Amino acid sequence: MPHRSDRFPSSPSPSSRPALPSRDALAATLRAAGCVFAEDEADMILAAADGDPCAVEAMAARRAAGLPLELVVGWAEFGGRRIVVEPGVFVPRRRTEFLVEQALALAPDAMVVVDLCCGSGAVGAVLAAALGDGVDGDGVDLHAVDIDPAAVRCARRNVESLGGHVHQGDLFDALPARLRGRVDILAANVPYVPSDEIALLPAEARDHEPRVALDGGTDGLDVLRRVAARAPAWLAPNGRLLIETSPHQTPGALTALTDAGLHAELAVCEDRPARVVIGTRRVGGEG
C-alpha cells in the first residue's frame, strides 16, 4: 500500500518556494534587458505581482523579451486613471493627455462625447470622468468606436463603468444616427504613421500593437482626412474635432480640416511633445 504522503503530497514548504526578488535585483535584470526606467518598472511589476515570486519572474521575463510594460502589468496610467490594457491593443501614450486637456479646456460643458479609433478607450474614459454629470446633471453621453474587435472588448472594460457605449465598426458608420449634429467633443486619435515607416517604429509598438492602430497610409493622413471630411455632419454648433498629429504632418492636417469647412487651429505642447489639430464647426456653418 502506498504511503499516505505518496497519495496526498504535502504543499511545498516555505523554504522550498522561490524568494521574492528585491527591487534592486529586479531593476538590475530589467536594466540589463535595456529598460531605461528600470526602477520604476520594477515597482510596477512588484505591485502587480502582489507578493507572488513566480508572477514576478514571469512578468520580468515577458518585459525582458520586449513586451510593453503596460501589457505586462495589464494597465496604463493615463489622465490620472488606471486604464486596462490587453494584449493586441494599442497602448495609450502619455502625450495624448494633451488632446484630452485641450478638449476639456475648449468644451468644459460638453454633454455628447465621441472617441473615434478608441483603442483601449482611454481618451473617452478620462473625458467622461472629468466632465462628470455635466451642467444639467444628466451625465455625459459617451460613445467610443474602434474597428478592431480586441480594442472594442478592452474599451468596454474602461468605458462601460462610466456609463459609456462602445461600438465596433469603421469610424462614423458605427455611431447611432441620433448623434448627428449633436457631438460636442469628437476626439480622434487616428493612426498617423506613414505605411513605409512602420518598420522604423520601436519594437514595442511594431511587434506588439495592431497595425490598424498605427498605419495612416502613404503620408500618414489617410484616416485623418476621412474623419475630417465627415466630422461637420456630426458636430454640434461650436463642436470640436481634436486629432493628434506629428510636426511634419501638421500642414496637411490643418488643410484637411479647412477643406471640410471647419475652423482649423493648432495646439502644441513642447514638453511631452504633442501636437493637436482642432477643427470647430462654426455656428451657422455647413454640416
Rank of each mutant, 00 (worst) to 15 (best):
P12L: 14
P14I: 01
S16K: 09
S16N: 08
R17Y: 00
L20G: 07
D24V: 02
A25V: 12
A27G: 09
A28Q: 13
T29F: 14
T29L: 15
L30I: 15
A33E: 15
C35S: 09
V36N: 00
E39D: 10
E39V: 14
D43Y: 05
I45S: 07
L46G: 10
A49K: 04
G51R: 07
M59I: 03
R62N: 07
R63W: 15
A65T: 08
G66C: 11
L67S: 03
L69W: 03
E70K: 12
E70C: 15
V72A: 06
G80S: 13
I83A: 06
I83K: 03
V84E: 11
P87M: 01
G88L: 01
F90K: 11
R95S: 07
R95L: 05
E97W: 05
F98Q: 01
F98E: 06
E101M: 01
A105L: 00
P108F: 10
D109Y: 09
M111P: 01
V112S: 05
V113H: 07
V114Q: 08
D115Y: 08
D115P: 09
L116W: 06
S120V: 01
G121Q: 11
G121R: 13
V123W: 13
G124V: 07
V126I: 12
L127T: 00
L127V: 02
L131R: 00
L131M: 00
D133A: 11
D136N: 12
D141E: 15
H143F: 11
H143L: 09
V145M: 14
D148Q: 00
A150R: 04
A151L: 11
N158K: 15
V159T: 14
V159R: 15
H167Q: 13
G169S: 02
G169C: 07
D170E: 12
F172E: 02
F172D: 05
D173G: 03
L175R: 04
A177I: 07
A177Y: 07
L179S: 04
V183G: 05
A187Y: 02
A188G: 02
A188C: 12
A188M: 09
V193E: 13
E197M: 07
I198N: 07
L200G: 10
L200P: 02
P202R: 08
A203C: 01
A205E: 05
E209F: 07
P210F: 06
D215V: 03
D215Y: 08
D215R: 08
D222I: 03
V223T: 14
R225T: 01
P232E: 01
W234F: 12
L235V: 01
L235C: 02
R240M: 04
L241Q: 00
T245L: 10
T245I: 05
P247S: 14
T250V: 08
T250S: 04
G252H: 03
G252T: 05
D259G: 13
G261M: 06
G261F: 14
L262D: 02
L266P: 07
V268P: 11
C269D: 15
E270N: 11
D271G: 14
D271N: 12
R272D: 08
A274H: 03
V276G: 06
R281Y: 05
R281I: 02
G284F: 13
G285S: 15
G285M: 13
